[in-house]
């Protein structure tokens, strides 16, 4: 029981309030607490600032190989903006190569706003691959 509930019971024990008043106060307290909890849940979470990639591979030898990369999300945004500078001729070549590799994506159709939105939603992404010899984790922090 929390501090307020304990105070109500003490007031009842000391005879300062009647049992009916104590019941009403406890009911009011119970109504108030779910609202407070809901308020805490609706508080926005801190926006992640970094994309983290962790790789650990033990298949190569005794010492595990490790890769630990932390990329500021702002850097991803800046990189995405750079793609708008890719000349149309180069974009056509990239699209052709992508299609040849089995990835039929037209990069010229990707708008900067869409890429921005993609980065904004990255904080929801968590990749966790764990097998007997290697472990890969991708997440935002």
């Amino acid at each position: 029981m929390d501090e307020q509930g304990r105070q109500i019971l003490m007031m009842l024990a000391e005879g300062k309030i009647t049992a009916d008043e104590a019941e009403r106060l406890i009911n009011a307290l119970e109504r108030q607490q779910p609202e407070l909890a809901a308020g805490a849940e609706s508080r926005p979470k801190a926006r992640p600032k970094y994309l983290r990639v962790l790789v650990e591979d033990t298949s190569t030898g005794d010492e595990p190989s490790r890769i630990n990369i932390r990329v500021p999300l702002q850097l991803l945004r800046a990189g995405v903006r750079l793609t708008s500078l890719v000349p149309p001729k180069a974009m056509t070549k990239i699209n052709t190569e992508l299609a040849r590799s089995g990835v039929p994506i037209d990069l010229s159709e990707l708008k900067p706003a869409q890429l921005e939105e993609l980065i904004d939603q990255l904080h929801e992404v968590t990749v966790d691959v764990d097998d007997s010899t290697s472990k890969v984790q991708v997440f935002c922090e």
């Binding site: 970094y50 010492e63 490790r66 890769i67 630990n68 990369i69 932390r70 500021p72 850097l75 800046a78």
Partner: peptide, 13 residues
């Protein structure tokens, strides 16, 4: 300008 905070660590033998 966006580079501060970046970190790259590779340990492979």
């Amino acid at each position: 300008w966006a580079l501060p905070g970046a970190r790259l660590e590779i340990d492979d033998g």
